[in-house]
Design a protein around this nucleic acid. Structure first.
Length: 629
RNA sequence: GGGCCCGUAGCUCAGGGGAUAGAGCACCUGACUUCUAAUCUGGCGGUCGCAGGUUCGAAUCCUGCCGGGCUCACCA
């Protein structure tokens, strides 16, 4: 990957320079093959002076000396022979290296201040990122929010790392669930519409889904009193099982075999599949309501997609993939005509891909959809942002595509993430504990408004501008709170903590950015110069200044790492640390009344670079930064 | 039962061979005449689930156990 990071004279990174220097030192001082040694290099702990630390313990064998002596040897050598190394100190076998101020200055003023700092040049590769992918029977909830933030951030990261990213979602727009909403609307809706009720349209449809479940439960409760039901209970219930427990587990069976409502819903699904014009029209009407609602939510979250796939189209796909598999002899036919793949040698199970009646199943569609996306975009990498409950499904899907020798098979990745719990436990739609995405945003924005009202920082701005800022702050709190947790981890979402605006939060980072902007506004007023040549005259960087520059220095590499591991939480942590150091610097040093004009210019440039980097970092997370707050 | 994931401060989370294990919240504490106090200072807080092993060095790697989650459909 080519990073537009350093001017030609600085094309080797500091770790590379140091490593080469240490290897040369080993050859020169100890007569061993330095190039054969792996050098352990790490960031210097902040309680010691220096930026990079060489761990000398592993070198005792080649050097035949004590760690402290080796560290001193190496330190002397590097200080003398490597321009970038200004000084060193040794603590218990750890060699801490201090980098030349000139190097940091050159880096800051020529690279870090650039608007595209950290951005890789295009690599000509396309990657498809799937995320969100909701059902159309109810509005988006907290679980979707984590999914969307992860998928979006991964997309932004990949883009910054040089990829051409296509953001897609597959919308589950068919099946029994939407039929339930449709039926409830038909039976109990009385011709109501989102307009007539003033409800947000996806919530309107979701409410009918809930209503269906209510009516179904009422019907079910009534049926449980019947002789038929009691007979079944008497016959099928195991010893000691209460009626309540039995009927709870029997619900699905009741829906399929006895329920009037169930029968009607299933009939609607059949009519849908038979392309019944009336049902199709209703289906389109209700789905369009849902889409309009989703659109609002996506817009509020600030996400967009390049292409939408609909299951009503893709559920027929995959049959040619099955044929291909049969031809290649990686899939096999059973006696009843059904098709399966034996994946037991890959520590997976035997997987059916086609029923005896020739109809396909879920995973078959996914085979076809993967191929369709490849045909659409030519992407050899595809990312699926889906909760970890589907780990096995994706392992199976990827294995199948590999055996089919699909050209993109090696570039498939399941961006798996842990589900979101509430402090009270798991979210359950049946128990009404699901946190709605729209409500959530409303709440954090409300909270941001309250905090904002105690301050006067945005006085003089139009109401519209103030509202926009408040929105940005509230959403920053929410998004940062979710994205700062590593994807793999199941997370507990406490609504109280999600509206925090102090400490390790989005608004804290935003505030650091705002400060870097405020000082530039003031500089414009007072006519303070930020001239680059003037800034170069600054000497003797303060520890807080080198710390900031050093941190900026790591950003491009971090973007690369985060993109490769699809882990936005790394960026969130970086933004927080950078903001923290900016705040500390701000507190300890004056910028516009620094000792010399050169110091003022340097610090202004430092603020600019930090501000730009905070902005890029936050944008990678789908978070905006305001100019004032 | 098999497979995968998780277990670190009261709570939410970082760290995934290297120095005395870190942040934030909460609690206690000090700092606004200044470029934004949504900030900064100090304090309190730990058998890194348990037990073995590998290593100069283990929260980190290996093995076994304990606890939690997900999954192993001709459901989606």
């Amino acid at each position: 990957m080519n990073y537009v990071l350093l001017p030609p004279a600085m094309k080797d990174s500091l770790p590379q320079i140091i490593e080469a220097g240490v290897q040369a030192a080993i050859s020169d001082l100890y007569g061993a093959d330095g190039a054969a040694q792996t050098i352990t290099l790490q960031a210097t702990r902040k309680e010691f002076e220096g930026e990079f630390t060489v761990v000398t313990f592993p070198l005792t064998r080649v050097a035949k000396k004590k760690p402290d002596e080796i560290a001193n040897d190496l330190g002397e050598y590097l200080k003398e022979k490597v321009d970038e190394v200004a000084d060193f100190n040794v603590i218990k076998g750890f060699l801490n290296l201090v980098i030349q101020d000139n190097y940091w200055k050159e880096f800051l003023l020529s690279s870090a201040v650039a608007d595209d700092f950290g951005k890789a040049s295009a690599n000509g590769e396309t990657v498809v990122v799937e995320f969100s992918s909701p059902n159309t029977n109810k509005p988006l909830h907290l679980g979707h929010v984590r999914n969307i933030l992860l998928g979006w951030s991964a997309s932004q990261l990949l883009e910054m790392a040089g990829y051409d990213v296509k953001k897609v979602q597959i919308i589950n727009d068919r099946g029994i669930a939407i039929c339930k909403s449709m039926l409830a609307w038909q039976l109990f809706g009385d011709g109501a519409t989102p307009e007539s009720t003033g409800k947000k349209s996806d919530h309107f449809v979701g409410d009918f889904y809930v209503l269906f479940e209510q009516k179904f439960q009422e019907e079910y409760k009534l049926w449980q009193q019947s002789e038929e039901a009691q007979a079944i209970f008497g016959k099928s219930a195991k010893e000691g099982l209460s009626a309540e427990a039995f009927f709870k587990s029997y619900s699905k069976k009741y829906f399929n075999d006895y329920s009037k409502l169930g029968e009607q819903a299933r009939e609607m699904l059949l009519r849908w599949e038979a392309n019944d014009p009336e049902v199709r029209a209703l289906w389109e009407k209700m789905n369009n309501w849902v889409y309009a609602g989703f659109e609002e939510t996506y817009a509020a979250l600030g996400v967009t997609f390049d292409k939408l796939y609909y299951e009503s189209n893709t559920y027929v796909l995959g049959k040619d993939m099955v044929d291909k598999g049969l031809e290649m002899d990686v899939f096999h036919t059973r006696e009843d005509g059904s098709v399966y793949a034996d994946l037991t040698d890959a520590k997976l199970s035997e997987k059916t891909l086609m029923r005896a009646d020739g109809t396909s199943i879920y995973i078959t569609q996914d085979l076809g959809t993967a191929r369709l996306r490849y045909d659409d975009f030519g992407a050899k990498r595809m990312l699926y942002t889906v909760a970890d409950e589907q780990n096995h499904h994706f392992a199976t899907l990827f294995e199948l595509l590999k055996r089919l020798e699909e050209p993109y098979a090696d570039g498939l990745y399941h961006l798996s993430y842990g589900m979101v719990d509430l402090p009270s436990g798991r979210m359950k739609s049946r128990e009404g504990t699901v946190v709605d995405a729209d409500d959530l945003m409303k709440e954090v924005i409300h909270e941001a408004r309250l905090v904002s009202q105690e301050r006067a920082a945005t006085e003089g701005l139009s109401q519209e501008d103030q509202d926009a800022i408040i929105r940005q702050i509230g959403l920053a709190a929410l998004k940062f709170h979710i994205i700062k947790v590593g994807p793999q981890k199941r997370m507990t979402f406490d609504p109280k903590e999600s509206v925090d605006m102090q400490g390790q939060t989005g608004p804290y980072v935003q505030n650091a950015y705002v400060r870097t902007r405020a000082v530039w506004r003031k500089a414009d007023e007072t006519g303070a110069s930020a001239d680059l040549d003037l800034a170069k005259d600054y000497t003797d960087l303060a520890p807080a200044e080198r710390e900031l520059v050093h941190q900026l220095y790591g950003f491009p590499e971090l973007v690369k790492t985060a993109a490769e591991s699809y882990d936005p939480s790394l960026i969130a942590m970086f933004c927080y640390e950078l903001a923290k150091n900016l705040h500390k610097f701000w507190h300890d040093h004056s910028i516009l009344s620094a000792e010399t004009p050169a110091a003022i210019a340097f610090r202004l440039q430092l603020c600019k670079a930090v501000g730009n980097t905070l902005q890029s970092g936050m944008n990678l997370l789908g978070i905006q930064v305001p100019e004032r707050m």
